[in-house]
Every structure is written in C-alpha cells, then in structure tokens.
Write a protein that binds this DNA or RNA. Structure first.
Lengths: 133, 133
DNA sequence: CTGTATCCCCGATGATACTG
DNA sequence: CAGTATCATCGGGGATACAG
C-alpha cells in the first residue's frame, strides 16, 4: 500500500468516525506547524541546542514575545525541553525532546518536497495570475 | 545521512544564505498547509475527485466562502485542477494534479506521525497544564 | 448548483516598555 | 540574559445575502 492510498483511505475512515476537530491529530499537529514560527524553531533546534538569545539571533524577525510563546507551546506539547542554569545572568537552553526528534523525519520529508517542487509552484502561480489579469 | 541530519544541515544552509521569507519554500508550503482547511481538502481529494457540493458535505464545518477561496489558492499553486461541465445546473469537479499527488507522500508521513504520537502529545499537555495549575 | 459580495469580529502577531 | 505586561493592529474566517 502506497502512502497515496493511505491518505485516501484515511479520509474514508475519518468520514465514518465523524471525528470532532478537537480530537483530530492532524489538525492538532498542522495547527501548530502552521503557525508562523514553530517549524523554524524546530529546524533550528534540530541543528543544535540553543539558548534563548541564540535562537533569537538565528530567527531575527521573531519578537521576544512570540519566541517565548512558541517555545512554551512546544514545551507543553512535549516536543521541546527547557533547561535553566541558575547563573548570573541566567541562561536557559532549549532542546528537542525524543518526541521532538521523532518529528524531524516526517518534517524533513515535507521540507524536501517543498524545496524540490517550489519552482513548479511558483511557475504555476505566475501562469494563474497571468491568465487572471 | 538521516533526515534528522538533513534538517539540521538545512538550518545551517539557511543561515548562510539569509533567505528572504518570501523566497523560503518551507514557509510557502507550511503557510498553505497550516491554514485551517487546505490539508482536509487535499486529503479528501486524495481519496477521490469531488464536486463542490460533495466537498462541502465531506467537510461540513467549512463555509462556502472559505471552500471556494482555499480551492482557488490550491488551483493557483498548481496542486488542484478545476473542471467545469456546462450542464444545467452547472457542475464543477476538482481533482488533484500530478503535483498535488506528489505531495501526498510527505503529507502522509506527517499524518502518520501525528496519529502515532498524538496520545503522547495529549499526555504531555495534561502534565504541563497540571504543573502550571 | 456553484459560486460572489459585504460586513464584522476576534485572535494571532507586533511594538514597546518594564522586571528579576 | 531571559523573559512579562500592555496596548494596537491586521487579516483570516464566519454569517448572511445575492447572482448566474
């Protein structure tokens, strides 16, 4: 069974079970990955553990507010762990948990798809916009 | 090289190239997948071609407005094709394009991850919320 | 049946200032 | 350094009515 058949079959199972959106694993996961910063933070932490300021330098266009909030959400979901060192000034290190690491394979598959197909998508957009104009 | 190393290495390449967000394939793709309805529509169309009303029945909690808009976005990106049959009343069928089908494998990987890890995530949340309270 | 056009609201995000 | 608190903004998305 290919993944294509798998996704289609999944749809039919969903239809039969009439899942509540709040109980749908896919919405749960994609709602988080889909927000503006989660995937970037996960990718950064995949490369290496980061302290708060280092993460901020790695992703310059995020605000401290959203960096904190996104990290808390990831921590809450068990994807990231937070390690406080009571130095002065304080330092806090963020790491992917094993659960977080386990997401890298499927995320990597999507990233690879995105990179390999991006030019095709951009071309399709240009054509569509041309015809619309 | 595992996908994990791949994602980490990707991060370093991104850092060196200092990509504009608008040119980042991953943001492009995840912004679309991350919206409220795209993934559900793609999964539905993976199972089979759908007419507008059938798609609406398959995903009852979407409004006609957002269904139309999301389908247009998918069409613009070349992931979905639109086929009009000039019957009365009119009927329109939506299908995944080959490009759209090519996304099902990586999307399926993510869906499989989400389903297999969802209980772990829910448990982590419960623990986190308990400690916070 | 397959959409468009409007209006409206709320939540996600940013900016800025402050704190241990 | 690593956040928190507060206010302002903007656009995604719902509801409704209309149209070809």
């Amino acid at each position: 069974m290919t993944s294509t058949e798998g996704v289609g079959a999944l749809f039919d199972r969903w239809q039969q079970r009439r899942l509540e959106p709040s109980q749908c694993p896919v919405r749960d996961v994609l709602d988080r990955l889909g927000d503006k910063w989660t995937s970037l933070i996960v990718v950064a932490l995949a490369a290496r553990d980061h302290r708060f300021a280092a993460l901020h330098r790695a992703i310059p266009d995020i605000s401290k507010r959203m960096l904190t909030q996104t990290l808390r959400d990831l921590e809450r979901d068990g994807l990231v762990s937070r390690h406080v060192f009571p130095t002065t000034p304080p330092s806090v290190e963020y790491r992917l948990t094993p659960l977080g690491h386990s997401m890298l394979d499927p995320l990597g598959a999507l990233v690879a798809w995105a990179e390999s197909r991006h030019s095709e998508i951009r071309t399709a957009r240009a054509v569509f916009d041309q015809r619309a104009a």
